[in-house]
Each structure stands twice: as structure tokens, then as C-alpha cells.
């Protein structure tokens, strides 16, 4: 009698598992439709090519630093008075919103300085920590910065000082690059005007990633 009940239970479990498994293969995957975001969703995600920079603590910043977590990369420079502080302040709001829901543990924000002549690791540390002590910063040789920037389509240009000026300006992409826990490029967020939208887009990206993991 007991064995018969057990058999029914086992058969029940097996059929549910089989049903779910078959369903995954044969039913339309509406719940894993690609997220519609403010920017470009990269599908399939793209491998990040090697690069070697130095982080805010003087340690190597390379593929290993991006492993098994979500990384948001922003390219800028500390002399930047407007766009970089605005973006970092917004990324801080974004990160705090995730933190409030306990969703921030595997999310790191990085500012990559494209201006190594003025930005040292130490300087970046103070700069990024001002916005959020959990944020990281990295920079390095121009060649290595280019390796990172170019593969994401991030453009920047360092200008010569204007006549009579003792400083120079840098044009740079304002995009936020999203790298998934497999160290692959997953999205390029552009024109992120509101923190709400940023949180929404990132969560949609993460959920889609989670849903498509086998």
C-alpha cells in the first residue's frame, strides 16, 4: 500500500519535471523575450577581450575583476565638471535603490578614466568614493584603455588645450556598459535620463539573463 503511494508520488514528480523540461523546448518562450531597454541589448552576449588596467587601489583591473558579477562601466575623467558627476550621482542612486532591495551584492559600478595623464589610481579612488564608497575606478596605458573602450564602441577624444587655457577637455561617450557574470558584454545603456528607468532596464537585463540560464 505504502509502496503504491510512493510510486504515484514519484511518477507525479517525474511527469512534472518532464513536462517542464519538454515545455522549455517546445513551447514559445514568451517569458524570456529580449528586454526592451533604453540602449542596445546585445544578443547573443559578446566575449570581452583581454585588457589590463590598474584599479583605484593600485591592483590589476582585468577580466578577473568582472568575473561572476554584474559590472557597469562608465568612461570619463575627473576633470569633467558636469556629465561625469551627473552620471556617477545617478549610478549612486541606482545602486542605492538596488541595495534597498538587497539586489546590489553582485553589482559593481566602475568609472574608467580615459585621461591617465591627470587621473592616477589614488585620485580615482577619492573621486569615485565620493559618490559611493563601493564604486571602483580604473585607468592605465592609453593602449589598454583603447582595448577596453573600442570593443564596446566607446568613443573618446582628448583635446589639446585651447589657446590661453591651462587645461584641456575630453569628449567621451556617456554610455553605461553592462557586463554579465560570464564576463560578456550584455548591454549598452544610453540616454539614461532617470534612475527609475536605469533600475528598470538593469533588472530586465538581469532577469532575462537568469531566465535563459540552463
Amino acid at each position: 500500500m505504502l509502496n503504491k503511494q510512493l510510486l504515484i508520488i514519484v511518477l507525479g514528480v517525474v511527469s512534472v519535471v518532464a513536462g517542464v523540461w519538454l515545455g522549455r523546448y517546445f513551447l514559445p518562450q514568451t517569458e524570456t523575450a529580449e528586454p526592451e531597454i533604453n540602449g542596445i541589448y546585445i544578443s547573443p552576449s559578446r566575449k570581452v577581450a583581454d585588457f589590463e588596467l590598474t584599479n583605484q587601489s593600485g591592483q590589476p583591473f582585468n577580466q578577473a575583476a568582472l568575473k561572476e558579477r554584474w559590472s557597469l562601466l562608465f568612461f570619463g575623467y575627473t576633470f569633467c565638471p558636469d556629465v561625469c558627476p551627473t552620471t556617477l550621482a545617478q549610478l549612486n542612486q541606482f545602486h542605492s535603490r538596488l541595495a534597498a532591495e538587497g539586489l546590489d551584492e553582485d553589482v559593481t559600478v566602475w568609472m574608467i578614466s580615459v585621461d591617465p595623464a591627470r587621473d592616477t589610481a589614488e585620485r580615482l579612488k577619492e573621486y569615485t568614493a565620493f559618490f559611493n564608497p563601493k564604486f571602483g575606478g580604473a585607468t592605465g596605458d592609453r593602449e589598454e584603455i583603447d582595448k577596453l573602450a573600442q570593443q564596446f564602441g566607446v568613443y573618446y577624444k582628448i583635446h589639446d588645450p585651447e589657446p590661453g587655457a591651462d587645461y584641456y577637455l575630453v569628449d567621451h561617450s556617456s554610455a553605461v556598459i553592462v557586463i554579465n557574470p560570464d564576463t560578456r558584454l550584455q548591454a549598452v545603456l544610453t540616454g539614461t535620463s532617470s534612475t527609475d528607468r536605469l533600475v528598470e532596464d538593469f533588472q530586465a537585463i538581469r532577469q532575462h539573463y537568469d531566465a535563459t540560464q540552463s
Partner: peptide, 30 residues
């Protein structure tokens, strides 16, 4: 595109009948 190019300007126009906003990502005093 998404590239921000900051430039010094000599003046900022204040056309009659209009409201001009200096705001992040646009005109500002540096």
C-alpha cells in the same frame, strides 16, 4: 550620438520671450 563634447562658449543667448535652462548635460557655468 551618445558622445558628450564639452565646449567653451563666448556668450549664452537669452532670446526675448524665452526661458533658457543651464542644466546637466547642456549649458553650464564651469
Amino acid at each position: 550620438g551618445d558622445v558628450m563634447m564639452m565646449r567653451k562658449v563666448d556668450t549664452i543667448e537669452m532670446p526675448a520671450g524665452q526661458t533658457v535652462a543651464l542644466q546637466p548635460g547642456g549649458l553650464h557655468i564651469m
